[in-house]
Nucleic acid binder design. Structure first.
Length: 880
RNA sequence: GGGCGAUUAACUCAGUGGUUAGAGUGCUACCUUCACACGGUAGAAGUCCCAAGUUCGAAUCUUGGAUCGCUCACCA
């Protein structure tokens, strides 16, 4: 009887790409309408990276969010874009060159940067294609790149502005040096890992030959840069010795023994060597005591200037061995005690970070941090989950200046020009044509580039055109939410707030949702080296983009990481399959007479029940959405569609749908189609493709679900009495089914069931009206209702609330088993009654608890007592 | 060392003061009934980490402890 058909199997690959193209062709991801906009700027993925499961999660959650608000009618904008990822991208190209036997210096800066742009273009196609594959409803017309012209303008503007405000300075400091990438990195880019090393005990003899001082170090090779040895001023072991000169072995220099409060008397021997150029503590100590800074490292991490000839060019490892050997020969090496300690590694290259003295640019962070903390205090930003507030605050309070210069070629070159002749420094938006001081025209731009995050921190407003006063900026800034993993809170989130407050006077977004991290099934971080990552595109290929998104939504609770293997995505794909098949069934049964409009539908109790359930589901999604409780959204639509709609409502309507009367068939089909249509709208943010595919086959559908209105909860669709009545029906059916199952009655066998209703039972009328329905669910055509009828022989009894169900099982009753089961139920119920009675006889409870709770307990007690009465009667009957 | 989080069914996890604590997966039994075996029906399965406290009432709040994890931190 149907004109519309869905293919038999749910095969997402058949329609996902087509629908995405349809959405793009019709520009459905552009903000439209009036009112308060909803804006999200995508956390820009590394342009040379590939989409990993973190992106899969993160973009799934953003997509659900923006699709919901778009359907709610707010002008909704999700801004796409990618990040130039300085070190990572430069490394990609340098690795290519290495395979060709070349280095970046063979190409020169200009050619190298040009080549990197080409690599960027190639990779860019890949990453955007991947985002399209997973269905991300991004407004591609507004796509940005952290190094495009506009963002470069914004970056230069920010640099100059901060410089003019005195918030950027240049200086020679000890920075974290990545010897592999040969650049400085910021404190945040250093990851500390526990390493099994050794504590080397060494003796430094006094210059006058009067003995020695023994000290301990984890890095004996830095001996070559030592300028002093320090002890604590109150350390009695060294009393009277402070001020004497020591003879630094190997390097053959004389260095003083001095006193400084920073030394820990308890650690080692209480004496520490001072190497200002290669240790942060020593750097500070060196400044306090006006000591020299002896740099002993080349930029590549080998031993360089200021070391004896025989050490030149050695790696630190080789130098360490050589030093120990030489000290041993001199009789100054005591022992190496195994020692675990934290060693800094560069986040990108993995190389061991060297504290390294060099001239770098820094941002003064304190003033920025204060404004960023103000944003939180004044509730301009809100963290979900809330506990990340303290992570944010703690970081802000302990903020240190940010080293922003990188000795790379790929990135925003620092807009600072120095006069070749007089050395005058110009910090400008554009290259000056002549020196402002001496008028000479030969100026050289600072060769360094800026940290990648120096462009990322402007992302929410620079992508909208800032610093120009563009219409987009006026309309869509500040943005509404940022959705990103919590491991990026310092790098990006916190700094965006700082930049937003400093440059726009506004927090760049209101809501900060920190996503969980996706881990493997064993809870380990997904990583290339472990090979335990899941490729989101493989998931899409195997299960579909909807399975990916729905599974991510369903599993994302607040602050709990997700442990998952690929099999886990079956959750989403099974649900999508269910939606597909239920829809296929409904579409198959659309009557030739067509679908009636809502106002011509006559609703029965079952219809009212499902309406109430739908209403509750809509409310639950709305509430969860405002609180970013994704798992609640997922569970809500899953349970509504599968448990309520499919398992009960669709089954319940089969009687009508197969009725002889065409009018009844049309009524039932019409109601089903309207409910399906609304369910599809309800689920579209979470399963976008399948819902759209089915929606577009529905009679009278609108243009697209993307822009269809989200369902709205309406009080006139709340029907508590219908819900209670249908609940009673479900209980009744459950009881009969249980008996069937327990007595292993063939599901196909029609059995006799008598439901003995108590007088005044509230749902008696409803059950009577729906006799055929109960009979169908229970698989008993002969089911009948009776009041006061005598109980036939050969039945088992199911005790319900307000009725008894007698199921005729005749000779199959296993009496001992039935009695045993009954005794168990009875015991359990009696225990329960006892606990409620205790509660109610407790005056304190009756007096203190709210009236409705007490009332509820009373009701439960009387119901349970009622059950006990029936159970005991039944027991007596079985025994007799 | 500081801070944060986790500990609930075999597994992965929901559940922040009020039914006899839930879901998905897995497991058991039955069902190839004409939307779906990626299905249906039913079932088994839990000292809510431990201890003390607050409360009429605690998985939920407080304190202490245990175990695991994350994060920050200059013990050479």
């Amino acid at each position: 009887m149907s004109q519309i058909e869905l293919p038999k199997a749910y095969n997402p690959a058949d329609f996902e790409d087509r629908l995405y193209q349809f959405w793009l062709d019709n520009d459905l991801f552009s903000p439209r309408g009036e009112g308060e906009p909803f804006v999200v700027a995508i956390p820009p993925p590394n342009v040379t990276g590939v989409l990993h499961m973190g992106h899969g999660l993160n973009n799934s959650l953003q997509d659900a969010l923006v699709r919901y608000w778009r359907m709610k009618g707010r002008p909704t904008l999700w801004v796409p874009g990618t990040d130039h990822a300085g070190i990572a991208t430069q490394q990609v190209v340098e690795n290519q060159l290495r395979k060709e036997g070349k280095s970046r210096y063979d190409l020169g800066r200009k050619a190298f940067v040009e080549r990197t742009w080409k690599v960027k273009e190639d990779h860019h196609a890949i990453i955007s294609q991947q985002l399209k594959k997973i269905g991300a409803s991004l407004d591609w017309k507004r796509e940005r790149f952290t190094m495009d012209e506009g963002l470069n303008h914004a970056v230069r503007h920010v640099f100059v502005t901060l410089y003019e405000r005195g918030l950027i300075y240049k200086g020679r400091y000890l920075v974290n040096w990545d010897p592999e990438a040969q650049t400085a990195i910021s404190d945040d880019e250093v990851e500390y890992k526990e390493v099994q090393g050794a504590l080397y005990h060494i003796r430094y003899p006094f210059a006058d030959g009067s003995g020695f001082v023994q000290l301990a170090t984890t890095r004996p090779e830095t001996l070559l840069g030592d300028v002093a040895v320090a002890v604590h001023p109150t350390d009695e072991r060294y009393a009277g010795l402070v001020g004497k000169l020591l003879k630094l072995p190997v390097a053959d220099r004389e260095i003083p023994l001095l006193a400084d409060g920073f030394v820990d008397k308890e650690f080692g021997t209480g004496a520490v060597k001072i190497t200002p150029a290669h240790d942060p503590n020593d750097f500070e100590a060196g400044r306090r005591h006006n000591l020299a800074q002896i740099n002993i490292l080349n930029p590549d991490g080998t031993l360089g200037p200021n070391v004896p000839e025989r050490y030149m060019g050695l790696t630190t490892k080789a130098a360490r061995e050589k030093i120990v050997a030489e000290l041993t020969e001199l009789g100054l090496f005591v022992e190496a005690v195994p020692h675990k300690h934290q060693v800094g590694h560069a986040q990108r290259s993995g190389a061991v970070v060297e504290p390294y003295l060099s001239e770098q640019w820094f941002v003064r962070m304190k003033p920025l941090a204060e404004k960023a903390m103000e944003a939180l205090r004044t509730d301009q930003i809100r963290f979900y989950p809330k506990r990340y507030e303290s992570t944010y605050t703690t970081w802000m309070e302990g903020i240190r200046d940010w080293c922003i210069s990188r000795q790379l070629w790929w990135g925003h070159q620092i807009p600072v020009w120095t006069c070749d002749d007089c050395g005058q420094v110009h910090v400008k938006m554009e290259a000056p044509t002549a020196c402002e001081k001496c008028g000479k025209t030969a100026l050289t731009q600072d060769p360094d580039v800026l940290d990648t995050w120096f462009s990322s921190w402007l992302w929410p407003f620079s992508t909208l055109g800032w610093p120009e006063a563009t219409p987009d900026l006026a309309k869509y800034y500040p943005t509404t939410a940022v959705v990103t993993a919590y491991d990026i809170i310092f790098f990006w989130v916190a700094r965006m707030v700082m930049a937003g407050m400093e440059f726009t006077g506004k927090a760049p977004f209101r809501d900060i949702y920190m996503t969980p991290l996706v881990r493997d099934a064993k809870g380990r971080k997904m990583s290339k080296s472990l090979g335990n990552g899941i490729d989101p595109l493989e998931v899409v290929a195997e299960y579909g983009a909807d399975a990916l998104k729905f599974t991510m939504v369903y599993l994302s609770s607040q602050g709990q990481d997700i442990n998952l293997d690929k099999e886990g995505f079956k959750l989403g794909s099974k649900f999508a399959n269910k939606i597909w098949n239920a829809s296929r069934y409904l579409l198959m049964n659309i009557p030739t007479e067509g679908i009636l409009p809502p106002e011509q539908l006559s609703k029965n109790g079952v219809d009212l029940w499902i309406e109430g359930r739908l209403n509750a589901a809509i409310r639950a999604v709305d509430t969860a959405m405002l609180a970013y409780k994704y798992n609640d959204m997922g569970h809500t639509v899953y349970e509504f569609f599968w448990n309520d709609f499919c398992d009960w409502y669709v089954e319940a309507t089969k009687l009508e749908l197969y009725a002889d009367d065409p009018k009844r068939r049309q009524q039932a089909a019409s109601k089903l189609v309207h409910l399906l249509e609304e369910s599809l709208r309800l689920m579209h943010p979470f399963l976008s493709f399948i819902t759209e595919e089915i929606y577009q086959k529905l009679p009278g559908h609108a243009f697209s679900l993307v822009t269809a209105p989200y369902p709205v909860a309406m009080t006139e669709r709340d029907h508590p009495e219908a819900e209670a009545a249908f609940g009673a029906l479900q209980d009744l059916v459950g009881g009969i089914r249980r008996v069937r199952s327990e007595f292993a009655i063939d599901p196909a066998k029609d059995i006799e069931v008598i439901v003995s209703l108590e007088k005044d039972y509230a749902h008696a009328a409803f059950l009577n009206q729906n006799r055929a329905l109960v009979a169908q669910f229970a698989g008993s055509e002969r089911l009948g209702f009776a009041a006061g009828a005598p109980k036939p022989d050969g039945t088992v009894t199911v005790v319900g609330k307000g009725y008894e169900t007698w199921v005729l099982v005749r000779d199959v009753i296993d009496l001992p088993k039935e009695l045993d089961k009954l005794a168990k139920t009875l015991t359990k119920t009696k225990q329960y009654v006892q606990s409620v009675e205790n509660k109610l006889s407790n005056q304190a409870f009756v007096n203190s608890a709210p009236a409705d709770i007490v009332e509820g307990e009373r009701k439960k007690l009387s119901e349970a007592q009622d059950s006990i009465r029936r159970l005991m009667a039944y027991q007596k009957e079985l025994q007799g």
